[in-house]
């Protein structure tokens, strides 16, 4: 049985910077199995976030193929992209990007509402998700009323609420202090282990990368074993 959740074959991406063309990704190959976690490390500007953006359908690869959760990401139309982001993947960014006009619970339940799940059911599941990340008591608070760690935990709950097959995490603890960082890192790995979700993690942190099943290094546009 094929358990491959993510398959990247020969993906490349370049950007125009004035008269120059910067080749960020040359030929990236990557495979991720269900429930597996891979940490991608690399220097700043090496293209880690770009790779994540290509997989998340936020940007288009110039060449190569990206197949994620059964979707040919590079060929998706707007409507299919919405379905892909809604059902198949979850994002965790360095910054929480919670909607400031919505409470923690409302932020978490939004992706469910977008799938047409009734509000009552969505709210109950959101409360449960917040409990699982340890901030149930803060569910009625707005992001401005939460600490950095709490916001990131709410963002994690939001990413997991639709039970995605793949979590794309871009420096998820990069903006947190030492104490919260460790807490959130442990939470990420425990939650994905419980839910059987695959994780593609981009980080500078060797400590965090060590917690993943596998670590890869992105250098000169190529993804290599360290």
């Amino acid at each position: 049985m094929n358990n491959t959740i993510l398959s990247v074959r020969g993906a490349g991406k370049s950007y125009k910077s004035g008269p120059e063309t910067l080749q960020i990704l040359k030929e990236v190959n990557l495979e991720l199995q269900a429930g597996q976690s891979i940490a991608v490390m690399g220097a700043s500007g090496s293209g880690k976030s770009t790779l994540l953006n290509l997989i998340g359908g936020l940007d288009n690869a110039d060449c190569g193929e990206i197949e994620s959760c059964g979707f040919q990401v590079n060929q998706l139309k707007e409507k299919e992209l919405t379905a892909y982001r809604s059902k198949a993947i979850g994002f965790v960014f360095q910054f929480h990007y919670l909607l400031k006009d919505f409470t923690a619970a409302e932020n978490v339940m939004l992706p469910m509402l977008m799938r047409g799940i009734p509000r009552k059911q969505a709210k109950a599941q959101a409360e449960e998700a917040l409990e699982q990340v340890g901030i149930a008591a803060r569910s009625g608070h707005y992001p401005a009323q939460l600490s950095g760690g709490e916001r990131q935990r709410a963002a994690l709950a939001r990413a997991l609420i639709n039970r995605p097959k793949l979590i794309l995490a871009d420096e998820p603890t990069g903006s947190l202090d030492e104490e919260h960082r460790s807490l959130v890192e442990d939470l990420i790995f425990s939650r994905i282990a419980e839910s059987g979700t695959a994780l593609l993690l981009v980080t500078h942190s060797g400590e965090l990368a060590k917690k993943a099943d596998r670590t890869m290094l992105l250098r000169e546009g190529l993804l290599q074993n360290p």
Binding site: L58, T82, S86, Y97, L99, K100, P111, M114, R115
Partner: peptide, 16 residues
Amino acid sequence: RREIGTLKCTGTSPGT
């Protein structure tokens, strides 16, 4: 704008 970007990332359609 940031919220719109976030909503799109969480699977909200442009129509919605």
